[in-house]
Amino acid sequence: MTNDYKLTIAWLYPDLMSTYGDRGNIICLQKRCQWRGIDVKIKPITLETQNSQLSGCNLIFMGGAQDRQQKLAANDFLNNKAPVVKQMIENYIPALFVCAAYQQIGHFYRPFQGQDIIGASIFDLSTIHPGDQAKRLIGNVAARLIYPDVLSGTVIVGFENHGGRTSLGNKLKPLAKIIGGFGNNGQDGFEGAFYKNAIGSYFHGPLLPKNPQIADWLIKSALEVKYAKNITLAFLDDSLAQLARQKILDRLKIIYER
């Protein structure tokens, strides 16, 4: 067993940025660690939390939000936590940013009215809302992973619900190729972004329980960065996740090839 391993997961703004079942990602990471005997702690990081609590964490998660809550969180994130998060990501700390968090780590979000909302520029991307006549990109979605390399080709599923269209800059790689649904902008066929050990995605649904390969990759990467050695995680039975994924692929009329 791997009882000696310890992980601390930073959950950014659980009371503000946790709208679409985002807690599922945290539950998934926590349980998959516990089932393998990894001593895991979830550290809620919110408005009142000091940066010193954040910087020692081994994995970062931040989820989606409603507009009003996002503004509250964004203000604190930009002024306080983002520089720390950026440094951690540059140091290969694995991270997952979903939906509103994904938009917020880019350069800016341009609403269809009003001024640009400045982002944390942790990822080289920007998001534009094309106007109130443009439809929201809502529905079940599936994509084939491009990165991380070890998961390349794996099909992931989820649900997306966003008005903003995200474009990646030159320094950033897309996470996956869309095979059903919209993804980043509904135009270029890509979904999400990948940088060092950090992932950004529009998939809530939430992402990790139905796509446990990504959960395990995040855990493994976190341990490898912390303990500076190769780690092999114990096998877990994911047949239920597979059945749930198959339902989405059926809905999208996608024939699963792997």
Binding site: Y20, F159, H204
Partner: peptide, 9 residues
């Protein structure tokens, strides 16, 4: 609702 994510809440 098409989105069942809420069961995680």
């Amino acid at each position: 609702g098409r989105d069942v994510s809420w069961i995680w809440d």
